[in-house]
């Protein structure tokens, strides 16, 4: 399996992280994972993921980074 693609959205102004994540999900190979780095909980993205059959986990780093792992259910 190849290295998961990482999107660092911590220095992007909204809606940049949402746009980049949705673009990446369009081309995400089955079984692979996308990692998104943010400084918040992106509830609009979670709604899209839930509605489109993706699952995700989130974990907060010590530097206030929310590390979100996304993959198809």
């Amino acid at each position: 399996m190849s290295e998961p693609r990482v999107i660092d959205g911590r220095e992007m102004e909204p809606p940049g992280p949402l746009e980049a994540t949705l673009e990446a999900l369009d081309t995400l190979p089955p079984g692979e994972e996308l990692i998104l780095l943010l400084t918040c909980q992106p509830h609009p993205l979670y709604q899209v993921l839930r509605r489109n059959g993706y699952i995700w986990t989130e974990a907060w780093d010590d530097d206030f980074t929310n590390v979100i792992h996304i993959r198809a259910a």
Binding site: E19, L22, E23, L25, D26, P44, Q47, V48, R50, R51, N52
Partner: peptide, 9 residues
């Protein structure tokens, strides 16, 4: 931008 995902705003 995603062409295939649907939103539920």
């Amino acid at each position: 931008m995603s062409a295939s995902l649907s939103f539920d705003q």
